[in-house]
Amino acid sequence: MLLLALDTATPAVTVALHDGTSVIASSSQVDARRHGELLLPAVDRVLAEAGLKLDAVTGIVVGVGPGPYTGLRVGLMTADTFGLVLGVPVHGLCTLDGLAYAADGTGVEGPFVVATDARRKEVYWALYDDPRTRVSEPAVDRPADIAATVAGLPAVGAGALLYPDTFPDARAPEHVSAGALASLAAEKLAAGEELEAPRPLYLRRPDAQVPKNYKVVTPK
């Protein structure tokens, strides 16, 4: 088995290769504005580090968010296209689940929260009983509106670190890693679990305003 995992749902552009036993190469860069530029060179680098070519990959794992739209699509479009050319399955995993999985062994005991930055003063978040068990649907909310629900729970992720009033017990990991996503996927696949379809979790409707100069693409 050789899984290629990608996630661009958060400011991290992260790529990893997993051979079914462990992560054999990975790359993570945090740059919220350059997902499109950074992802493919990172894939190329990770493959080179492992001394492999893309056609050795037997499955793709991609973080489906939730995440701010534009960056999120870079990972999904790349995964879909690789799947098309290689003829291998493309598995989706909730990005928050990857963060929760990475929290294993960092001292989080019992129920906790994962929260990422949703911009616009909101967080994407979900509740977990343990690093492998999500107990709420991913949602997008203002931190103050969920303060009562998450009160007293430890929290991981950049969204938690950003809002200490709501998440006083916030801790690392701050960003998702494709290594964690790949390990989680490998574990689920080995257990015979079916993974999600690689479809984006936007959680917000598109802003429906037509920009004033819509469709004007010619520079003046």
């Binding site: 493919l40 894939v43 056609d55 870079v74 479009m77 790349t78 296209t81 690789f82 050319v85």
Partner: peptide, 11 residues
């Protein structure tokens, strides 16, 4: 652009 890059790279 993302699709084209992934497509060209994979091929």
């Amino acid at each position: 652009v993302t699709a084209a890059k992934a497509y060209a790279y994979a091929l």
